[in-house]
Design a protein around this nucleic acid. Structure first.
Lengths: 233, 233
DNA sequence: CAGTGGTCTAGACCACAAG
DNA sequence: TTGTGGTCTAGACCACTGG
């Protein structure tokens, strides 16, 4: 909170945001270039650049060389989700975490999983079914496939003591991933495991992670009713 | 893709990430300080700073003055969601967008909404019910409250021609907001509007937005089955 | 107190793209 | 071709915080 005095980039950032919000600079409009703003604020161009870059990252302006900087017409807001390790998420609520490994088999995955994991035809993968518990009550049911062809060490890991989730986080950092959320009616199998009635709406998260194009794991998490995913905008 | 030659900050960034992924720098470990890295890469300290700041923003390292820079123990990954305007989301799929304003009444909102909008006791708000359609088929049902006490212009707007969603985006920029996703079984009312059976699992998004602490709008969106929310990690 | 990251500067060169 | 943002530098001072 210190260098917000006068010529700090944070000061320039908030001034710019204020001009956008007050519609002094309207959507679609061109704003002064960096050199002029630097003169106006009495600072170096690099400082203006730093401020405008932050504003652009937040989606308020669009910048292009030669074309200049324009106020975004649709200030597309971005929400950021921190993906928690399930154990930490539960412990953060003051509950005890535990998990049950219900199923662990190496077999040929369905075509859709093979595609997500980038597996060649006929290559097997490790299938795990895990129940995550909070205070010994079901919290989420997890169906996971692990690419043991790419990650041979995973075949030797003991997922009864450490959850696959955490083992992978620490042993198989990924470079890219995709996350898909949806809602589904619980099938008989999930309903039984989560101790709810068949047909109850459950929140579902599917995640696929890869390392430089090599699929690592594909997971489907089904949460007990009442689960909410919070994001700050 | 140009200044990735040798001493660009992007080059340093990828080199740092590679050392983390290859466990040359292990979780929890201290990495060299900026001055030393600048010497090693043969560049200015500012360039190293730019690179490390990017890596820190992505959550891979933790930086503290005097304490130095450490590899994050739990590389908490962040997913970024671009919040689309519903119309654009539908048009992006090549479908026609339209909407029906089903209900528009100014009345005292329930306590929970008053709290979310930061409304004083006894202050009314504008309640809107809207059905969003893609190719004339139901896409989502929206229940919205607008703080007309703070946004008097909203009371005059014609939400039959422009959706409240878009009107607010262009006329009431917000500074903070919260987004909550969950799953629910469709009640009779929603089921009828969305043309599905009662009890079907529907994906629900609730959003509250404010401007400097003043509530602007509180929305609950219920999507037809099959809706998926995608995020890149 | 002293080491480390955070920031600012003044100037330079470069990459990109609009006209 | 030329204006605009993108980046790098070498050096400086400051802010925070561990020891």
């Amino acid at each position: 909170m210190s260098p917000s005095e006068a010529n700090s980039w944070q000061h320039i950032q908030s001034e710019v945001l204020e001009r956008i919000r007050s519609r002094q600079w309207k959507p679609g409009e061109l704003i002064p270039n960096e050199t002029d703003l630097a003169k106006e604020f009495g600072c170096a161009r690099a400082t203006v650049n730093r401020a405008l870059r932050a504003v652009a990252d937040a989606g308020w302006i669009d910048r292009r060389r030669k074309a200049g900087t324009r106020v975004a017409t649709f200030p597309e807001r971005k929400a950021v989700l921190s993906i928690p390790v399930i154990r930490k998420e539960i412990e953060a609520k003051g509950q005890d975490y535990s998990h049950d490994l219900l199923h662990s088999v190496t077999r040929l995955p369905p075509a859709e999983v093979s595609r997500r994991l980038n597996l060649a035809d006929g290559i097997k993968a490790l299938e795990l079914h895990t129940l995550h518990l909070a205070d010994n009550k079901p919290h989420a049911y997890e169906e996971r496939w692990i690419n043991v062809d790419f990650l041979p060490e995973a075949a030797k890991a003991d997922f009864t003591t450490i959850s696959a989730n955490e083992w992978l986080v620490t042993n198989a950092p990924f470079t890219e991933g995709e996350l898909v959320f949806s809602a589904a009616n619980a099938a008989a199998k999930e309903a039984k495991l989560l101790n709810i009635e068949t047909g109850t709406a459950i929140f579902t998260a599917s995640r696929t992670t890869s390392h430089d194009g090599n699929g690592i794991t594909a997971v489907r998490l089904m949460f007990t009713p009442g689960y909410q995913l919070h994001m700050a905008i």
